[in-house]
């Protein structure tokens, strides 16, 4: 390990342990992957391979998706393969830029909601209102699914069932 990385790790470990954390340092390889889907859209991932057989994958472009943990290194390549296929398919749509923008907005929405709860004392009614709005969006997504033509069959959707 690079001397300076090691020094930095030692400091972090000391601070985190004193904060009360259990810290395990796992050496591994960080991999950055990037695909040019077209001239404007690039899809990028970052993942970590380590000896503990725990693999963390994150898509960082065109919009971030939450960290996932997988059992084997092969899973990572399969997931990236399908993801890239879906994006190559999706760029054919005229709505691709709208799709990316909405995803950004949704991501920002989650961050704003987190700030709202962590920084302010929110009354219960506000939660109920937000919950109702989310249910409306869920319903809209499901309705849209019902009346739209399916375009990708490489695998079944992970979150849109039925």
């Amino acid at each position: 390990m690079n001397k300076y990385v090691q020094s930095e790790t030692n400091q972090h470990v000391m601070k985190l342990i004193q904060m009360g954390a259990d810290v395990t340092v796992v050496s591994g390889q960080m991999v950055y992957v990037s695909f040019d889907i077209n001239e404007e859209i690039k899809v990028s991932y970052v993942y970590n391979i380590n000896k503990k057989n725990r693999y963390f994958l994150e898509r960082i472009r065109p919009y971030p998706i939450s960290v996932k943990e997988f059992e084997t290194a092969e899973d990572i390549c399969n997931i990236i393969k399908i993801d890239v296929e879906q994006f190559r398919n999706a760029v054919k749509s005229h709505n691709i830029h709208e799709f990316i923008n909405i995803n950004y907005e949704l991501h920002n929405l989650i961050l704003q909601f987190e700030d709202l709860f962590l920084y302010y004392n929110i009354d219960h009614n506000t939660f109920d209102e937000i919950k109702t709005d989310i249910e409306d969006i869920h319903e809209r997504i499901n309705k849209a699914k019902e009346k739209s033509k399916r375009v990708y069959f490489g695998k079944e959707p992970d979150h849109l069932k039925g």
């Binding site: 001397k3 090691q6 020094s7 930095e8 030692n10 400091q11 000391m14 601070k15 004193q18």
Partner: peptide, 14 residues
Amino acid sequence: NVTTILLIVPVTLV
């Protein structure tokens, strides 16, 4: 010496 420094300096910084 280098190993010693790599162990003591991070602690010193904290």
